[in-house]
Design a protein around this nucleic acid. Structure first.
Length: 468
RNA sequence: GGCCCCAUCGUCUAGAGGUCAGGACACGGCUCUUUCAAGGCCGCGACACGGGUUCGAGUCCCGUUGGGGCCGCCA
């Protein structure tokens, strides 16, 4: 049993979801998941793009069993198949020029009709066709479509019928010899013995062409399953225009691959019951095409962020540290501190970007202080009070959350103010912000030296701005 | 325009003739609390519309409307 997603370009979340369903289906049924790169469009296919897709797939955990197979290296196969169809009279050469076809298309459009190739070249006798081809006359190869309704049995949509009038003799091989997508796909699916084709809904309208082609090829017809599209919040097919439509963008935004995998799996499939956070093993065990919905789904970044937070909350600290390290632009504190900081911050960050920033805050003193916080918490007496606090903290024999909290509360008492009057400016002094993890945990983690240095630096800044 | 697909809270969805139409995200409130979160509790909120079929339709059929896709010598 084999499956074939076929991405080209950077890995779009829609393509990723398709590949993911192929993978889950293969794992569930014990089949083989293979990757085929459909790069027959010489103008558009580029090697960097393929490498990008491969790395994005690996990052997401979409490991394939076979491949990647490159269609660009399988031209002999397509050529042979085309010659066979030609010899059997199932396909024929057509000599119209692109300009002529364009004219016809325009005409049809102007008349408000759907354009279909006329089939004029069907009438050219084989001998004449051979002679003109040998003489080097440019031509394409077209499939002789049967004049009957084509029925597609879709695993998700059921029976879908396409009347013969809707189909024309489409092109199999371009005049420059390059096989076209529909043709290479069917030849490859046949040769690779593909049993199930799981792909986007946008291919449903192409499927009758493929069915006709498989028949012409004398090949078994795979089972089809067409997934609903993934839409942007404007309910249009998700594209670059919507921002963050590519897997790589989410990776760079600090999303964990496990979370994106889980999120994408649930875009169109639900295992039943109320579960949403599933392990890979659970998904593989429970995935089934019968439970995949036919309707399109809107990609909601908010929910992805929530799901990512769920994974951030549960991931082992050392693992999370490793994932966040690339995002700690301003350095990391010692490992022990970083590990403790992870526990402190995991409930309040949603991405590894945010975690990286939190981690860096232990390694580098704040560059500035939140202006609103400053306005709110810095009073004329604040420098003096914090100075007193610093002295009291300095005298501490041990440095823990409990001991520093006690010292602060005592200082507040001595000053005749509530603890909050000291807590808020202290947080501002140590972190530069008014929000964050519980203060004394931060104080303990920062260590005596760093905490006192930040506190005194803040006192100096406060004195400078608040003439006594 | 032709052909095709789709239609349950704003969003993701459960629901396979009989449910107070369930859950999650988001949103609002309460709680916890030195701040911000996370967590817990509560709330708001949907079967697109119209016809059938049936004792009984979110569920089946038809139509309307709306949305989407495809109509290339692109994939």
């Amino acid at each position: 049993m084999r499956f074939a997603p076929s991405p080209t370009g950077s890995l779009h979340v829609g393509g990723a979801r398709t590949a993911l369903y192929n993978l889950l289906f293969a794992r569930h049924t014990g089949g083989t998941f293979l990757l085929r790169i459909e790069d027959t469009d010489v103008e558009r296919s580029r090697e960097e793009l393929t490498a990008q897709i491969l790395s994005a797939m690996e990052w997401l955990g979409l490991e394939f069993d076979e491949g990647p197979f490159y269609q660009s290296r399988r031209y002999d196969l397509y050529r042979a198949a085309a010659e066979r169809l030609l010899a059997e009279g199932k396909a024929y050469r057509a000599f119209e020029t692109p300009v002529e076809l364009e004219t016809e298309r325009k005409k049809a459009e102007a008349a408000g009709r759907a354009y279909r190739y006329s089939g004029a070249a069907r009438a050219i006798p084989p001998e004449e066709s051979d002679r003109r081809a040998r003489a080097g006359e440019r031509h394409v190869v077209r499939l002789r479509m049967p004049s009957e309704t084509i029925v597609v049995e879709d695993l998700i949509r059921g029976r879908v019928e396409f009347p013969a009038e809707a189909l024309d003799d489409f092109v199999l091989v371009r005049s420059d010899g390059h096989p076209l997508y529909h043709f290479s796909v069917c030849v490859d699916d046949t040769e690779m013995r593909i049993t199930h084709v799981i792909r986007g809904d946008d291919h449903l309208a192409n499927t009758p062409k493929h069915v006709a082609l498989f028949r012409a090829l004398g090949a078994p017809i795979p089972r089809f399953a067409h997934l609903g599209m993934i839409l942007g919040t404007d309910r249009k097919k998700l594209s670059k225009r919507h921002g963050a439509a590519a897997v790589e963008e989410w990776r760079d935004a600090g999303i964990l691959p496990e979370a994106l995998f889980n999120f994408l799996a649930l875009l169109g499939w639900a295992p039943g019951g109320d579960r949403e956070i599933l392990t890979r093993a659970e998904m593989e065990r429970e995935f089934s095409l019968e439970k995949v919905g036919a309707s399109p789904s809107v990609f909601d970044p908010e929910k992805l962020l929530w799901m990512n937070a769920q994974y951030v909350a549960k991931m082992p600290a050392d693992e999370l540290l490793a994932r966040s390290t690339p995002h700690a632009a301003k350095g990391l504190p010692p490992r022990e501190v970083a590990l403790a900081a992870i526990e402190l911050h995991r409930p309040r960050v949603r991405t590894t970007i945010e975690m990286g920033r939190a981690l860096s805050s232990y390694a580098e003193d704040p560059a500035d202080y939140d202006p609103d916080g400053w306005k709110k918490h810095v009073r004329p007496e604040t420098p003096r009070q914090l100075e007193t606090l610093a002295r009291s903290l300095e005298a501490l024999p041990d440095w823990t959350a409990a001991s520093t909290e006690e010292a602060l509360r005592k200082t507040a008492e001595g000053e005749g103010v509530s603890a909050g009057k000291l807590i808020h400016p202290t947080r501002l002094a140590l972190t530069g912000t008014t929000v964050g993890a519980p203060l004394f945990d931060v104080v303990a983690l920062l260590g005596k030296e760093t905490a006192l240095r930040r506190l005194r630096r803040f006192v100096e800044a406060a004195k400078a701005q608040t003439p006594a």
